[in-house]
């Protein structure tokens, strides 16, 4: 496998869906498609806002409670950023197909399935966001997310952003945090045991991975030469490349 933590994305590659994206990170690959706003079934119809339907499909097998749980987390997160009040009595359908999960050479494939649901959550969130952007869905704000594993070593807790599979399995606690572009916390899911001090450190580290360090260049767009590690820059660069490719005819 290539560089495990490197992220890559392809936008608008499925021709029937309104918007689509493939996103790989940390050994996980997810294909996302967004359709909407479309006609909604009567029982799901909401009078003043759009209904959001998230479908998570595993690479192998049919979805179970784990997928339903992920769907509910995604649904409540995406509700916050899509301008749902602009499209009352419609449906916005987000389909996320997991196509690749990191393989464990030592253990069988079943153990990876059974492990925590949090490992794939940042990839799912990011794919959903890219697919929504590809579908030109009006959003109030974009977000970025990160997975953090905390290992306790006596009194010191070491934190790893986007850990490998081994790092993830051996962690004392794992956390998924999502931040909006302004650096506001959008989602926090944790699993395992940790102290309040750990949590403060985790929050700080997650912020530095997700959000650009100086808030100044948010207004001015992306400066490519500044290759920073944060996810916001990644999302911006991906979109910029896509827009440049789509508008190549325009002088």
């Amino acid at each position: 496998m290539t560089n495990a933590t490197a992220s890559s994305a392809i936008l608008s590659h499925l021709h029937r869906a309104d918007g689509s994206a493939t996103f790989s990170q940390n050994g996980y690959t997810v294909i996302g498609a967004v359709n909407g706003p479309i006609e909604v079934q009567r029982r799901d119809e909401l009078p003043v806002e759009a209904a959001i339907d998230v479908i998570v499909r595993p690479a192998a097998g049919v979805g179970g409670t784990r997928e339903r749980h992920l769907e509910s987390i995604l649904q409540s997160t995406l509700r916050q950023i899509i301008l749902i009040h602009n499209f009352p009595r419609t449906l916005i359908q987000v389909t996320l197909q997991i196509t690749n999960t990191p393989e464990d050479k030592v253990a069988g494939s079943k153990i990876v399935q059974a492990s925590s649901h949090l490992a794939i959550l940042p990839t799912l969130l990011q794919t959903a966001l890219l697919a929504l952007l590809s579908a030109s869905m009006p959003l109030s704000v974009i977000f970025t997310s990160v997975l953090i594993a905390a290992h306790k070593d006596g009194a010191i807790t070491s934190l790893t952003p986007n850990p490998s599979l081994v790092g993830f399995e051996s962690a004392d606690s794992v956390h998924v945090l999502a931040f909006t572009l302004e650096g506001k916390l959008l989602l926090a899911e944790s699993q395992g045991t940790f102290t309040l001090d750990d949590w403060d450190n985790i929050l700080e580290m997650a912020g530095s991975v997700c959000v650009p360090k100086d808030g100044a260049d948010i207004e001015g767009g992306v400066r490519i030469e500044e290759t920073k590690e944060d996810m916001t820059t990644f999302v911006k660069c991906t979109l910029e490349a896509k827009v440049a490719q789509d508008l190549h005819w325009y002088t």
Partner: peptide, 15 residues
């Protein structure tokens, strides 16, 4: 062999 069509294929397929 399982072949379930998702709304990704086209929005006219219901999960």
């Amino acid at each position: 062999i399982t072949s379930e069509l998702s709304p990704m294929t086209s929005p006219f397929f219901e999960p």
